[in-house]
Design a protein around this nucleic acid. Sequence first.
DNA 1: CATATGTCCTGAGAGC
DNA 2: TGCTCTCAGGACATAT
Length: 278
Amino acid sequence: MPELPEVETMRRGILAVEGATITAAEKVKCRRKPITISPGMSTIRRRLVGKKVKQVGRIGKRVFLQMENNDRLLFEPRMTGLVLVADPPSQQHVRFRLEFSHGEKEVLYWDRRGLGMIYLLNDQQYQDRFSLKNLGPDALEVTGKLLKEIFGKSKRPVKVALLDQKKVAGIGNLYASEILFVAAIHPAKQCNRITMSQWDLIAETTIEILQTAIEHEGSTLSDGTYRNALNDPGGYQNMHRVYDKEGETCPICMDSVISRIVQAQRSTFFCKSCQKRS
DNA sequence: CATATGTCCTGAGAGC
DNA sequence: TGCTCTCAGGACATAT
């Protein structure tokens, strides 16, 4: 589930390692199927141990440690991955560990389902991997004009299109429903039928919702998986308007109930009265 | 190129 | 109570 706000919260949670030197990197033994860590641990150790972290960054839904030579160690949490500086929710799902020079700093990668990945890229590999061809502009940077350029000719349903990371980076299933509800756009509306003023509204709403979600440290759903770097839950789930609220009264019209439909094999939540196909 | 679909994986919760 | 089954949705390989 980690989307842009959750991953940005992870990034902020490990900012303290900026300037610290990595003293150890360890793939933690785990009875479950091991996650993908690339390249191998011996190469990772050779390139990281004794090196200083220049910056902690985020690209889309990935968080990374950037070294002084611009090697980047990326954590890609996918569904259930967490980057932690505190004790993990469970020991059995700890997959990877980094130790740092000063203080008692330690960073853990924890992942219950193990769909996440960790990989080390040199600067050129990073630039290629995340060129605009492969990953769209960050969702916090969008404008109506940009969205219209990116999506304006597409016939896809807007909700499905917003999830395409090649187009815009950072929006996932949860925030897509929330954004379109607030912008009052029907999730099945085709992109090429959305007006310029509606794109402006979607852009504004996207930034507003994602920023507010970051301020609240992301959304911890009922399964409780997502935690910040200190292993505390987020708070934005209390501000959800439609996500996972099928059958509940719409908070805007107070009349219709929230509907659930499936688009591209994923749940979409919306209000039939507030979000017209028009 | 654009878009659709199946797959990876675990554990919570539903249903019997 | 304990078993089986479904489902959650990140990114990507493959197909159309």
